[in-house]
């Protein structure tokens, strides 16, 4: 890798050596109630024109690396959705507390 090759962003893990020795676990557990509700909330907010998939991605992809890998899938979504709703002024910042 040459010196001017940028370090991939946290979410850009295609080919990353870090996981090469990790088997792909056959996890077939369907999303739980929390995950399905976060998923439905995202869809409804999108239908109402209050957020887009690209905004969801920006929010997920800006989660600091240690938290990105520690949080569950829909926990990352919830973090992003909440940050977006605060940023757009739909809810107050104290919703985080």
């Amino acid at each position: 890798m040459s010196d001017d090759t940028p370090i991939p962003a946290t979410h850009d893990i295609g080919g990353l050596a870090r996981f090469h020795c990790t088997p792909v676990e056959h996890d077939e557990v369907p999303p739980d109630g929390f995950g399905r509700k976060v998923d439905a909330l995202r869809q409804v907010l999108a239908q109402k024109g209050l957020m887009t998939v690209d905004e969801l991605r920006r929010g997920i992809e800006s989660i600091p690396e240690p938290e990105y890998f520690a949080l569950g899938y829909y926990e990352r979504w919830l973090r992003s959705i909440t940050a977006l709703m605060i940023e757009k002024g739909h809810v107050q910042k104290d919703v985080m507390e």
Partner: peptide, 23 residues
């Protein structure tokens, strides 16, 4: 339908493009 958990896993996302035959 919903993507399964393994499709969203860090291992599948990183390895499928590097060593698909191994996966």
């Amino acid at each position: 339908g919903y993507p399964p958990n393994w499709y969203k896993s860090f291992a599948y996302r990183s390895r499928a493009v590097r060593e698909p035959r191994a996966v």
